[in-house]
Design a protein around this nucleic acid. Structure first.
Lengths: 153, 153
DNA sequence: CTGGAACTGTTCAATATAGAACTGTTCTAA
DNA sequence: TTAGAACAGTTCTATATTGAACAGTTCCAG
């Protein structure tokens, strides 16, 4: 029991700092936190169905919808109906959005730069262990979260 | 660069599940997320100055104040001025609050129970490595967050 | 075909959150 | 002392978030 509390605490400590940094990063770039999440979710796949963005970010539908709306108004992402399935909407990052993302990466004191330092300060094996541990935990949590997801519909 | 993004991603995956679980736990027990945070912060030291709770939880003063207000109305914590320093307010968990915390710990499918399973599924050394890695990261983030904290005043 | 169930996303109203201005307290330097 | 700076918390208000009701699509059993 004690160990689990300790581990939870350990995550919590990382968490709260991470969130603070993310919030700061978001505000500095004129984004809400949900908007920031969306961009980070799409940084790899520059094109995604809105539904999938929702699954990755865990944002409620309404929040997602409004956040996307703002991003579209800002010209950061494009929104167009998928032909072949008019229910779905394809989101894609514009050049402007792409530039913004690159900017965010390089911001001094931003999450990414800080994590860059963290990684450099870490041994190869330590890094691997960390990833492995997290993966294991995520798998556990995901099966649990699934059940929550079920009732959210 | 790639590694830091990967690590960030790894944390993010744990994070979002953790938050979902915490939210669920909070709602199920009739608490807001800030209220839940406060209780978790006070689970060890059953008596704390409100200021300190704020430092630990990172909650904005106004949010903290209101959340505490609700908890007091529910009879979960007590609030009384510190004699010797009438600016400060001492928060203490009532018996009712204590029972609630114990309840939360034991809730099936709650964060604590899930983490219990996680820990059992983990080798001693893996556990230690994880804690060590997190500590290292927290230290890094904390020095960074400090600067943010400075301007929040 | 067709009617209803399941999807995908939007809108709107109610709630939650947090910055800014405030009250009262303590500390400190002249 | 005593003004004024720093503190600890509260209140008020504007903003952000989200659940619930909704509109249009797609799917499928009969």
């Amino acid at each position: 029991m004690l160990k689990s509390i300790q581990l939870l605490h350990s995550f919590w400590n990382v968490q709260k700092n991470l969130i603070k940094l993310a919030q700061k990063s978001a505000v500095e770039n004129g984004l809400s936190v949900p908007q920031y999440s969306i961009l980070m979710a799409m940084k790899l796949d520059k094109e995604m169905i809105q539904k999938n963005v929702g699954e990755v970010t865990f944002l409620p539908k309404s929040t997602l919808s409004q956040a996307v709306d703002g991003l579209v108004r800002e010209g950061i992402i494009n929104r167009q109906q998928v032909e072949g399935n008019r229910r779905e909407i394809m989101l894609s990052i514009t050049e402007k959005g792409d530039a913004l993302i690159k900017d965010i990466y390089l911001q001094e004191g931003g999450i990414h730069q800080v994590f860059q330092s963290v990684v450099e300060d870490m041994s190869e094996s330590q890094y691997d262990e960390l990833l492995r541990g997290h993966l294991q935990i995520t798998t556990f949590l995901e099966t649990e979260a699934q059940e929550i997801g079920e009732c959210m519909k």
